[in-house]
Design a protein around this nucleic acid. Structure first.
Length: 474
RNA sequence: GGCGCUAUCGUCUAGGGGCCCAGGACACAGCCCUCUCAAGGCUGGAACACGGGUUCGAAUCCCGUUAGCGCUACCA
């Protein structure tokens, strides 16, 4: 059996949505697993809405996700001649006919049907003019569309995710395949391209199920072998409606900006509608590829739950080595306006388990390297009030005195010193630690204080403590 | 309206006739750990849409109902 060829065929009329990204991912996973080829084709035939900028965003989004294509990007617009030739071939073979009705006449007929409450259907007998009349109008230069003559019989296929699906041809209209300006309509262009590109597996969104019988009829009329069709379910917003702008972030670029890691996004998207079958949640790329199967794709739509995405991102953040986090962290630091030549590894390791997004991670690092970002928050103020400003500063001063004399400035040594100090002065550990934390970060939450001191550095830590003593007693 | 698709905890899901008075994860609550917060560990509440069949036995198979979604363009 020859290697499968799959494709992802977005139209560049908007950003790369998570639904599209997941469809791309499923195609990619299938290609990687089977040793097949993943083709990227940009369907830019809607010239009104397609833009180069959108194309670039889609390419960037796929690249960021790690969904890399083996062929392409091909641009559907450049195959207009072939599309037209295929449509005309259908006309010549009697599988299609000329329709001289104008768009306006069609609209009027539809409006009439709607007004009288009957469903609008094309009547081929009326549309299909006598041969000599067709000839007369054509030579007279009347514009026409080419309409496919839909056979009446059953069209069924064994969908790779849904199983058997069946339609009756008679329920389908004779649809236009070539516009009066000579350009092909979607279904014609897709089939023409998929045949020409040797696509063996068409894996796409559920919203295309109703296009499939039309496309199958086209394959048959064109005498081409049928690919395998697999329709993956839609992705919904938390209100159960189709995911849209209203639901907030829906483009993969949005998630990059929110500080989501590509590996986490990939993992999350893969498990939205697909499951390896067991109980795992964190599935790395290799496992995804080896265990992927179209049969295990869910048939029903899934709600996109950002909370779980963030949890998963946190898992990746904790598990990934600082090395792998440097680039995204630097990107976010730049966005925050923080520029530093400090070595970031230790800082990242110190704070990463407490972060769910790279943004939060970067914010914490920013506070540790840039003193001007230390602002006491409400919880800190409450703590000061509860302990009493006098005790607070006294404890801080005590800590400062102790820390001044520390030889090795590392977490283990600092912890020993601080604990001894607390015991010696009969202080609760928290009453000594928390003031330091507040002095260093302005907040009540951080990594363990000894580690915080270590990554903040001796001079900077002492300076911040001195500053806090000053401002709080004042 | 017509045609099609779908239906397990709030959400993502496991489940392919007995292993299921339904398992895991997120979220939520409690406990443990602990200088704080995370992480981690433990515990808890929480679902087979409804009605008929088939079968010794159904979340699993069939039919119907209901609900949701999709398509019904000279858009893709």
């Amino acid at each position: 059996m020859p290697a499968p060829r799959v494709r992802f065929a977005p139209s560049p009329t908007g950003f790369l949505h998570v639904g599209g990204a997941r469809t791309a991912l499923f195609n990619w996973l299938y290609a990687r697993q089977t040793g097949g080829v993943f083709v990227l084709r940009i369907e830019d035939t809607d010239k009104e809405r397609s833009t180069e900028a959108h194309t670039q965003v889609i390419l960037d989004g796929l690249t960021w996700l790690g969904v890399t294509w083996d062929e392409g990007p091909y641009f559907q617009g450049s195959y207009a001649d072939r599309h037209r030739a295929d449509a005309e071939r259908l006309l010549a073979s009697g599988h299609a006919y000329r329709d001289f009705l104008t768009a306006d006449e069609l609209d009027a007929a539809r409006a009439r049907a709607k007004a009288s409450g009957v469903p609008f259907r094309y009547h081929r007998a009326e549309l299909e003019l006598p041969a000599d009349e067709v000839e007369r109008r054509a030579t007279a230069g009347s514009p026409y569309t080419i309409r496919f003559a839909m056979p009446d019989d059953e069209i069924a296929w064994d969908d790779a995710v849904h199983g058997p699906i069946s339609w009756q041809g008679r329920d389908l209209d004779d649809f236009i395949i070539l516009r009066s300006d000579g350009s092909a309509i979607y279904n014609m262009a897709v089939v023409s391209d998929d045949i020409a590109m040797g696509i063996t597996h068409v894996i796409r969104g559920d919203d295309h199920i109703s296009n499939t019988p039309k496309q199958i009829a086209l394959y048959r009329a064109l005498g081409a072998p049928l690919p395998v069709f697999g329709h993956v379910p839609m992705i919904l917003g938390t209100d159960g409606k189709k995911l849209s702008k209203r639901h907030g972030a829906t483009a993969v670029g949005d998630y990059q900006d929110m500080g989501i890691l590509p590996a986490a996004m990939r993992n999350f998207l893969a498990l939205l509608g697909w499951s390896p079958g067991g109980n795992e949640e964190i599935v790395d790329q290799e496992a995804m590829i080896s265990r992927f199967s179209l049969e295990h794709i869910q048939k029903k739509p899934a709600v996109f739950d950002t909370t779980k995405l963030e949890w998963m991102n946190g898992q990746y953040l904790s598990a990934l080595a600082a090395d792998d986090l440097i680039a995204p962290v630097e990107r976010q630091l730049a966005i925050l306006g923080v520029h530093t030549d400090r070595e970031l590894h230790a800082l990242i390791d110190a704070v990463k388990t407490r972060s769910r997004t790279v943004i939060h991670l970067a914010e914490q690092i920013a506070v540790r390297i840039d003193r001007s970002r230390v602002h006491r928050d409400d919880n800190a103020a409450k703590f000061v009030a509860k302990l009493g400003a006098a005790t607070f500063t006294a404890n801080l001063a005590l800590a400062a005195a102790e820390l001044n004399g520390v030889g090795e400035w590392n977490a283990a040594a600092l912890e020993g010193q601080l604990k001894a100090q607390a015991t010696a002065h009969n202080l609760k550990l928290g009453d000594l630690m928390q003031p330091i934390r507040i002095a260093l970060t302005g907040g009540t939450v951080s990594e363990p204080v000894p580690l915080l001191l270590e990554v903040t550095g001796r001079d900077e830590s002492l300076a911040r403590i001195a500053l806090a003593v000053q401002t709080i007693s004042a």
